[in-house]
């Protein structure tokens, strides 16, 4: 017997009852290795209005480039205190922020190294299905040859790369534009 994957539905406006029990905005516990980064930004709609009822889920490798998952069989260290998962809601102004470590590099399907990145799911009222995107890091030489960035037309790649904040040490800004001429690049990677 086989059937198709269950149909997605929106999380609606009241998801915090069920999903905000397990908010996780700090992935970088004290004994986790790697460079600390604070990533902050806003989720905006097609009218540049803030989206106060969105929630982001992130997934990333540790600083060695190893995922906390049985199918990552790379010979790299795992860290018991680093799960690589975060769940981050937006506030009334559409703002979000989280603290993590810069992930190491993981292989692409050809076995070459991808640039450091965080994968992101976006859920919100009005999104019938999650959106999937990625966060890359500024001043990263590996961005130029990255497997996924090369699939994106050059003029839109910047939407995936976080920006340094003037005067903010370890602070990066990354905004998520759902719709419009400069909308964030979203990926089709499965369900």
């Amino acid at each position: 017997m086989s059937s198709n994957a269950t149909t997605s539905q929106t999380i609606g406006p009241f998801f915090s009852i069920g999903m905000c029990r397990s908010i996780k905005q700090n992935l970088a516990d004290a004994n986790v290795s790697g460079e600390r980064v604070n990533i902050e930004g806003r989720v905006l709609d097609g009218d540049r209005q803030p989206v106060p009822d969105a929630i982001l889920e992130i997934w990333q490798a540790n600083s060695h480039g190893k995922y906390a998952h049985p199918e990552d069989d790379q010979d790299k260290p795992r860290e018991a205190n680093f799960t690589g998962y975060g769940r981050i809601p937006t506030n009334i102004e559409g703002k979000f922020h989280f603290t993590t470590i810069k992930p190491g590099q993981v292989p692409d399907p050809d076995g070459k190294l991808q640039a450091p990145h965080i994968v992101v799911s976006v859920f919100a009222r009005g999104l019938l299905r999650r959106l999937v995107t990625r966060i890359y890091f500024p001043d990263e030489p590996a961005n130029d040859s990255d497997f996924a960035l090369k699939l994106v037309e050059p003029s839109r790649r910047g939407t995936l790369i976080a920006k340094k904040v003037a005067g903010g040490v370890g602070v990066l800004e990354w905004n998520l534009i759902l719709q419009g001429s400069d909308e964030t690049v979203f990926f089709d990677c499965g369900l």
Binding site: T10, D72, G126, L151, Q179, F186, D188, C189
Partner: peptide, 28 residues
């Protein structure tokens, strides 16, 4: 017909991404 999709649905089609180690792993 679901009005909230009108300003929140991306206008551009998603970019097809073959799955990598990043997508075939996930949280537990």
């Amino acid at each position: 017909p679901y009005a909230s999709t009108i300003k929140r649905a991306p206008a551009k089609p998603p970019v097809y991404l073959p799955q990598t180690l990043s997508e075939i792993t996930g949280p537990s």
